[in-house]
């Protein structure tokens, strides 16, 4: 049962990861990578690593995408 769950979670992570890599607009990519981060946290939980899952939610799903979005915004505004 838990093996099946792990397979499902792993597949979702693979699909989401591929989607992030195939997205060429950085802003969209940031949002997708946040989704990817949540799915990764699910995988870690299934694999009985709740500590890692907690950090993953904080860093992978919130902090890093936010930094990417802010960077994209700064670059798009460009020098004035």
């Amino acid at each position: 049962m838990s093996d099946a769950l792990a397979v499902v979670a792993l597949t979702l992570v693979g699909v989401a990861g591929t989607a992030v890599a195939w997205t060429f607009d950085p802003a969209r990519q940031a949002v997708l990578s946040s989704v990817f981060g949540v799915l990764l946290a699910v995988l870690f939980t299934v694999l009985q690593a709740p500590d890692v899952a907690l950090s993953q939610i904080g860093v992978g799903a919130a902090l890093v995408p936010l930094m990417v979005v802010l960077t994209v915004r700064r670059i798009r505004r460009g020098p004035r």
Binding site: L66, M67, L70, R73, R74, R77, P79, R80
Partner: peptide, 24 residues
């Protein structure tokens, strides 16, 4: 640390204009 880090990015994204700065 995370607050200081995000603050740098927020400053750049929201408050800073002009110049041959990072990202340009």
């Amino acid at each position: 640390g995370a607050v200081v880090l995000l603050a740098q990015f927020l400053e750049q994204a929201i408050r800073i204009t002009g110049g041959a700065g990072p990202g340009s």
